[in-house]
Design a binder for these strands. Structure first.
Lengths: 355, 355
DNA sequence: GTTAGCACTCAAAGGTTGTGAGTGCTAAAA
DNA sequence: TTTTAGCACTCACAACCTTTGAGTGCTAAC
């Protein structure tokens, strides 16, 4: 594979740029007329022909203009230095919106999804912050009916989990509360394994309840990403490439069947670094149903607290510059929120806290 | 408006039935051939003409067959006595799935949505159970960083709410825990207003924290329905009426902008009775964007605990019989779950509980 | 009241043609 | 050697026309 000349790079970039705007194949003439390169259409044609041979461009049919391939897009995105910063006024406005929502943790992801969809004019995907390894912050047992007990677990990162279990015999609420307090005191700030290895000096009931706690925490640990929030799906459907409903359905199926997204997010969280933005073009070969789409993804959060992902899904022909900076901005904002509000790496027993 | 003759009723029903299957206008000839009514096409035509005059049928264009109007559908649904029961095998299978999930309250709605979408081959909408008037079950305050405090509220119906607030000065976790215990003991099982009117004999800090509780409970009370879960949106897009993407977008916008749905659910919860299924055809004039759709809705839950809604959104041309019984079945199932697992109308102080 | 017969309507499907944007190739110009 | 003008060729797309057939309403006979 040969290196591209500077002129070829420029032409490839322009073709991609123009295609993103026009949504239709780009011909040599249009290119010459719109951007005053000092070249004739014929020359441009030769270069385009070369780029087609190299797999950067593609012709939908013999007598049509050129369209970037995945490879072409990838080159384009890699060269995109000059990202369009989110304007200061927008940044201020968005920060303010989050400030007003700062109390409602569950709303963060929803708000972020809504804003990002609006900014990028595409579909946004956000996962709620989720701790890498859950630490127990608090546990409570509440009797509901008969032998049924509602367990409420507060984990690091502010994650709440609840579950209903049946005891073998009814127990007074008072006793349940005491056990909750006892387990909280004893295991506060501990990881799952540490709790699991310290189930000693307990009576039968305490042991059973502690077992529930461990079980639920293991469940939390086994999930790599938190709940997924979407917004702006209609934005994507508005794009001309989805005039065919079949394609639209494919896209939606990806969003509905969350398994693929979970995989994707898991990978991002495990490998990625917060703050850096990655761009997956056309499913990168691996995800068949995403062939026509691109995803701009970033990890957010703070080490030792919790991580999540923020991303945008749109047609491959997407305003990458704007989207990338929007995602980066949102990622930063959410990271700040998480570290400013949810810090609780180790819960120090209250009497030792230095205020 | 005249009463319809029995024969007219039969024809209207058959036309509707046939249109639901074929998705295209129904002519007199097809009708006669398919269902052996002892009539000639000409006679049927006369009756159809009459039904058209009365507004039950409609002709897309002069030389086409007939299609039911909203009024026609309404008649059809009203007459639908013989609902197709969900087969016993499916009922068993579904009950079993819920049994396996009985511990995870948050999963109920998601599972229900998934099953209902599958059963009805349309989009399902479920709201999580939400108490009419929140009763306090438990409150906990957890210090996170600096003056930030995470408040976790457990309300009746198993609803969890969390929020982060700032104190004017940092407080030891121990003191926060004590206040949590104190407020829980004092106000357990109380409605919002009762708590609000009993904020006496407290020091400044206790009062501030109790204020947060009241505030958050008022927020919960002001919401009539819980979180909305969807599934099977792609099912709806597969229907032929959405070959035009524009129409598909309209449908999705309804689902994304939850305000309209919230209104709808609120109405259902406030007016409806659990167990009865209502069918909204073509948005019933009130909801412009739903003109082409129908919604089959039912309230579920148990009085004094919590209510939610379960529904299906599909094209107006929908298999009403199957859908109605699927919705009814699911509504019953969820009602049972709520009352069997979440009963806690009044939390009786533990020492008085009769075990 | 019911039906056969008939003229009429009109959307949808299929066929034909023209248009124009775009190409690749070749030979001349730079 | 690189660039460009010129030209023949291709092919999707839109516009137009025609055919087809399902379906109608009306009238007159049963």
């Amino acid at each position: 594979m040969e290196e591209l000349t500077e002129r070829q790079k420029v032409i490839l970039t322009l073709v991609t740029h123009e295609h993103i705007n026009s949504a239709s194949p780009v011909g040599s003439k249009v290119l010459v007329e719109k951007f005053n390169i000092g070249l004739s259409p014929a020359t441009v044609r030769n270069e385009m022909s070369f780029l087609t041979d190299q797999g950067y461009l593609r012709q939908p049919h013999t007598s049509a203009g050129r369209v970037p391939t995945e490879k072409g897009y990838r080159f384009f995105v890699g060269r995109l230095v000059r990202e369009r910063e989110v304007p200061l006024s927008s940044r201020r406005r968005i920060s303010h919106q989050f400030f007003q929502m700062r109390n409602e943790v569950e709303q963060w992801a929803r708000l972020a999804a809504s804003i990002l969809a609006d900014q990028s004019k595409a579909a946004s995907l956000i996962t709620a912050p989720h701790p890498e390894h859950a630490l127990l912050k608090h546990v409570e047992f509440i009797s509901t009916v008969g032998r049924q007990v509602l367990m409420v677990l507060v984990l690091s990162g502010g994650e709440l989990r609840q579950r209903i279990q049946s005891l073998s015999e009814p127990i007074y609420q008072e006793r349940l509360s005491n056990i909750g307090t006892f387990l909280t005191k004893r295991f506060q700030g501990n990881e799952t394994w540490r709790i699991k290895n310290n189930l000693i000096d307990m009576d039968e009931l305490e042991l059973e309840l502690a077992g529930w706690v461990v079980d639920e925490m293991e469940r939390a640990d086994s999930m790599i990403s938190g709940e997924i929030f979407f917004d702006g799906i209609t934005n994507v459907l508005a794009e001309p490439e989805f005039n065919d409903t079949e394609d639209a359905r494919k896209a939606l199926r990806v969003l509905e069947e969350r398994t693929m997204l979970h995989d994707l997010f898991a990978k991002t969280i495990m490998n990625g670094e917060e703050g850096t933005v990655q761009v997956l073009i056309g499913g990168e070969g691996a995800w068949e149903d995403l062939r026509q789409y691109s995803i701009v993804l970033s990890k957010y959060g703070a080490p030792g607290i919790a991580f999540g992902t923020v991303g945008v899904l749109g047609p491959m022909r997407m305003a990458y510059g704007k989207t990338i900076s929007a995602v980066r901005f949102m990622s930063g904002l959410l990271s700040d929120l998480v570290s400013q509000s949810l810090y609780d790496d180790k819960i120090i027993p209250s009497s030792e806290v230095d205020l």
